[in-house]
Amino acid sequence: MKKRAILGIVIAVIISLLVVASGCAATGNQAQGTAPLPPKERVQVATTTSLYDTGLWGYLEPMFEEEYDVELDILYAGTGIALEYGRRGDVDVLTVHSKAQELQYVAEGHGIERVPFAYNYFLIVGPEADPAGIKGMTPEDALKNLFESASASFISRGDGSGTHTMEKTLWSAAGYEYEEVQNAGAWYVEAGRGMGPTLLMAGEMQGYTLTDMGTFVTFKGQTALVPIVEEGSILLNVYSVIAGNPEMNSSINSEMANNMVEFLTSATIQELIGDYGVEEYGLVLFNPCAGAEPQS
């Protein structure tokens, strides 16, 4: 009886060792490419959250996959993190929106070229009651008022994203050092999250926030926020696609990265981007601008 029990345990240990072995083998297989299905090439794109939260990528993904017969892995992250993934060679191509950072990225040699493919506008949104009374002001004056009154909350992305970078640009245009704003008091809230979550937070806290048009329209129904400031050429928001440079990172799938640039700027896809969400929201979320820098 005892002997059988011991035998049982021995068998159990052997089985568990086999599990390890097969587990290791499985990880080994995955190292070479993919899951059990017929191996398909995988392409990794890191995108700013606004293109993801609006559902645009979910809409375009199957089309790209079908056209080039690949698996497209979409990583949504703020522009800051997306660029960092690119610098480390973890993704093949980026879709981001922060011109200065992008130009620096290309200048460093990590990206081949910055190709704008769509634009819309940033806007400051807030509760309908407009507690700070900044409706219709220029962006600069609106921020000045928020800073001086220090009563109504302003929710910042606070995550180094393209929108966050734009916000810093606006603060400096309004005449403030960003550090000064960060330490200005409890009214200035750094969310550290994507655009969608930040909008929801602003809605919950009845505060103001800077957002891109696309994400705002998509989340409007859930936040009850309204546009407060939407005038001023400073608010132009340009999305561009940047293929990774294989000379910097040999692991970059250069062919597919270039296919992505071509795909996003092709006439068919440009038209689909321009029409995206128009029927559902009655507004243009993204204006196509294949390859050319829009002049507000």
Partner: peptide, 20 residues
């Protein structure tokens, strides 16, 4: 990460690395 010591394995952003 590709820039890291085990980057050659190309495992980042796969289920395998999550298991590890």
């Amino acid at each position: 990460s590709r820039a890291g010591p085990l980057g050659e394995l190309k495992l980042l952003f796969t289920p395998a690395v999550m298991i590890i």
